[in-house]
Design a binder for these strands. Sequence first.
RNA 1: UGGGGCGUAGACAAGCGGUAAGUCACCGGUCUUUGGAACCGGCAUCGCAGGUUCGAAUCCUGCCGCCCCAGCCA
Length: 560
Amino acid sequence: MSEPARNFIRARIDADLAEGRVSGVVTRFPPEPNGYLHIGHAKSICLNFGIARDYAGRCHLRFDDTNPIKEDTEYVESILEDVRWLGFDWGPHLYYASDYFEQLWTWAEALVLAGKAFVCDLSAEEVRRTRGTLTQPGTPSPYRDRSPSENLDLFRRMRAGEFPDGSRTLRAKIDMAASNLNLRDPVLYRVLRATHHRTGDAWCVYPTYDWAHGQSDAIEGITHSICTLEFEDHRPLYDWFLEQIGPAARPRQIEFARLNLTYTVMSKRMLLQLVREGHVSGWDDPRLPTVAGLRRRGYTPASLRAFADRIGVAKADSTVDIGLLESCIRDDLNPSVARAMCVHRPVRLVLVDWPEDRVEWIEAPWFPDEPGRMGSRRVPFGKVAWIEQDDFMEDPPRKYYRLAPGREVRLRWGCIVKCVDVVRDAVSGAVTEVHCTHDPTTFGALPADGRRVRGILHWVSAAHAVPATLRLYDRLFSVPNPASPPEGRTFLDLLDPGSLEVLQVWVEPSLAGCDPGTRWQFERRGYYVADSRDCRPGHLVFNRIVPLRDSWAKELARTA
RNA sequence: UGGGGCGUAGACAAGCGGUAAGUCACCGGUCUUUGGAACCGGCAUCGCAGGUUCGAAUCCUGCCGCCCCAGCCA
C-alpha cells in the first residue's frame, strides 16, 4: 500500500503531537444508524481508521443514536458489516452514544445547577419565532430566568414522564444575540416518547446531537473529532459544552469537505427515497453508491480504499468525477482477475471449410499476460461459434479492423478466419450468419507469409456455449449533478432508464460451475462478478462491475 | 444586507516566501493474439486588482464568486 496522501488534518495532528498537546491519536467514526453507509462514509471511514493506523493510535466505531424515531438495528447491523468489509477493525472499541445517556444526564443536571441551562416551556414553533434571523438577534425565552432549583425539579419531571412530547426542552443559557445561531440557547433535551433500539422505553427524553457528541468524544478520550463542513458552525458550541463539563483532555473538532460524485446522489434522504419508492431494488442495488450496493456490484474493498486515497481530503467543496472511481476498480481488478470469454449479443459464425463434427480443445491461459499463473482451461473450437454482432459489419467505416466481407480476423486463442459470405433474414434483411473459411496454419501461430491481422475477436463455441444472464449496470442518473435538477423537476426525473440492461448471453463452458462472488474479465468487454445472491450452477448471473476502456467507442464518438 | 468556510489545469489535489507534486480525463507515440494492459511524451503562473519583498500561489489590502447556518435531525 502506498503512502497516504498528505492532508491538512494530518498536518494538524503532526503539530499537536509536536507541541505535546496530545501524546497519541484517537479518532472515531460516528454514524447515525438511520440508513445504509455510502461511499462518502467510506471516505470518512478510511480517513479516521487510516489515521489511527498510521499514527499507531485507535479508531472507535460509535453509533450516534440519539434520535430513536429514525434509527433501527437493521442499520446498525449493515454499518457493522460495511465497516468490517471495508477492511477496518475497531477492536473492542464499539460504542453507542446511548451508552452515555446516564452520564450525559448527570452533566446536564450539573449545568442546570450551575445556572447554565434552563427548562423552557416554549413550543417548537415559539422557539423558532424567537430565535431571530440571520441578521437580527433572537429574544430570550420568558422561562430563561427560572431558578436552578425550579429548573432541576422540572428537568427531573421531564424525565419522569410528567410532560407531553414536545412540551418542554432543556436549553443551554448562552446568548440569544449571538451571530452564530447555534449559540442562541440551543436545545439539549427534548421530550420524546419513542422506543429506542437499544434503551427501549427507559427514556422519554433524548439528548440532541450537540449535547451528546462532544461529550461522547470526551468520554472516549477522542483526541481528534473529524467531521464534515456543515458542523463547522457547531464547533463553538462543541467547545462551550466541553468547557462547562471540564474533562481532563479536550477533543478537537476538525472539519473536512464531504464527498460528492458525478452521476449519482449521496444524500441519505434521496437514497432513502430511491429505496422506499422502489426506483432501485434495495439498499444494495448495484447502481447505488452505498457500500452494500458497491459490494454487490463487485467493487473490492481495496479499490474503495484506493479511491479514498486518490481523492484526498480538503475543505473545498468539490465533486469527484465518477470516472476516477471506475479507474480505481479497473486498476485493482486488471492484475488480479482471470480472463474468460462471453458473447453478449450473438450472431452465428460458421466455418464453411470445417468438418461438421470436428472439435478442437484449445489450451487458453487464465492470465494471458502471465501464462504460468493459475494455469489454463481448455476451450472447445468447432464449426459454429457465437461472435458479437458488432464485431461484423458489411460496410465498415475507416479504421474498423474487425470482421467484414473479404476481411480476416483472429478468433482469440484460435486461428485466423476470413469472411466469405453472409446469410440474411428473408424478411428483415439482417445478417443472421457470417460464413468464413479458416487458415489451419495459424492456430497458436502467426501467419507464415507475414500478413498482418489486427482484429481479434472473442467467441464461444455454439455447441458448447453455456447460457447466462448478464446485468449491465450503468450510471444511475443521466446528468452529472442530479441533486440539483432544473426548475420544476426532481432528481427522480433524471434517473437513467438505461442504467440496467439485462441480457441473455453465452459464456464459455469453463464458467459453468462458477462460484457466486467470483470476478472475471470477459475479454474486450469488462469486469464482471457472479452475483452473490442469484448466481448458481445451471443459472449463471453476472453483474457488470465496470466496462473496459474502449478506445474504439471513443474513436466513433470523435468522428460522429 | 449577520456569522462561519472555500476559491491552484476539464475533475480531484499537493504546496506553508525561493521560482507550480501526484492522480483521473484529454492529446500524441511505442508495444501488444483483449482497439485491454504496460510504457514514453504533452497538457496551469495559482478567482480578480493593488501593495510588501531581491523574490509571492504562499504575506497585506480591497474586490468578485461559490458553499453552510434560522430542526425539539445528525
